[in-house]
Design a protein around this nucleic acid. Sequence first.
DNA 1: ATGATCCGATAGTCGGACAATAATTGCGGA
DNA 2: TCCGCAATTATTGTCCGACTATCGGATCAT
Lengths: 250, 250
Amino acid sequence: MSAVQPLVFDRVETQPAYQLVASMIEKRIMEGTFKPGQQLPSELDLAKQLGVNRSTVREAIRVLEQNGLVFRKSARRLVISVPRQSELASRMSRAMVLHEITFQELWETMLTLETRAAELAALRATEEDVALLDANLAATRECLEHEERLVKLDIEFHLTVARAARNRALLLAREPIGLLFYPAFYKVMSRLNAKDRLLAAHTEIVTGIRGRDPKHTALWMEKHIKDFRRGYELANLDINQPVDASPYGG
Amino acid sequence: MSAVQPLVFDRVETQPAYQLVASMIEKRIMEGTFKPGQQLPSELDLAKQLGVNRSTVREAIRVLEQNGLVFRKSARRLVISVPRQSELASRMSRAMVLHEITFQELWETMLTLETRAAELAALRATEEDVALLDANLAATRECLEHEERLVKLDIEFHLTVARAARNRALLLAREPIGLLFYPAFYKVMSRLNAKDRLLAAHTEIVTGIRGRDPKHTALWMEKHIKDFRRGYELANLDINQPVDASPYGG
DNA sequence: ATGATCCGATAGTCGGACAATAATTGCGGA
DNA sequence: TCCGCAATTATTGTCCGACTATCGGATCAT
């Protein structure tokens, strides 16, 4: 039996249609044919154009959605979008948790990135950046006794410094680590009194940035982050334990 | 009409079922109920258990798949998995391209991360790491005239150093930047002769690592990366231009 | 003009169906 | 008994058709 079909050399391309559809649309986006802000054709349109079933298109759209290439505006309108850094960051964070990355690893990386960010911020911060930092400092002074707000302000402070560095790659690399860092930070703040040291360090950092002194700024950021590590240990937390998944608990 | 249903305050929670299904499964994975390596129940099973249609389950699976929480082994077996760093990295790279991140930004970040990685590698490299680096050096010496292989070996070299740093957060942060960096690197290598300088720097780095000299190692890595930037400019490439999407072109 | 109402388009979901093929089972032969 | 191949089963990929809820826009009444 086995009908000897003389047609040789066929399929090597075994890829589900929904993946093909997803990559075709992705290609259009990367090429710029579909531009951010523009809205995606309807599922039925896409299905007809691509010659597949609507279900297939829907699966493809799920893929794009998760990739952040399309974005749902009002649940009924899917628009093309540039991947949102925050989504990527949280995914990255989750990966780190699942890989059971330790606080030590996280801390080392954070030290590296934050120090550089501070240095660059000193070189590039605009007056607006400095104003934001001043405002943050002022608010921090007000909230020294309000733990939760303090943590929030600290997060904001570091983000502001990082933004002032005018380096989006750095910002992007920093974010997932920050997401995991802050729960730890909260623990430290609640267990020991490091508030004055925090304020002092922040103040010096702003001074450095205002004075366009990268050395000073970097140095104080380094001190600040190292201080935090010491705090972590003093709070009887083990730096060699994996960071926990708190961002996902609630 | 408008039946006056006395039941007040209902749905604010409008989330498609496929998203709910996806998060339920995700939850099981993050909790550890579903463990990496274990295989996902069949679509039909899931549909029955969750009381939804198979199509809905399928869409949810696409979501998980893109999140890297399940992984397809042989196209017929979906197994739970820890998100693969490489997938995340390429997604991150794509985001950077779409955000039109410049070479300058990329370079600064790479300088930061690679320098720290080198420093840590000097502290932590095992004999095995050093052996790998030696092998790479030897291969590099052999391939000095073979551009493509040289680039490949350089990529390998830096990856090996980064791995020797024993910091997965750093590794994770480094990867997406590396992905975008290498095309640029290739351009530089093909336009000017920096091969000897490359070999010299690599050699010094390995020497530093072998000698457990973080200062030396970091210094040479810094030189090496700065050298590259100079090369980039010498090759008449504009550091303020966005990096291109070469990984996606072919 | 303003608000209420109607209507079409579209997303979300469902049930069922079928082909292709990977995975497993069972059989026969060594 | 064990191995290799064939038959069977399970599962994925894809399709069709259908229904509902609702969003957006147009129409209508005030």
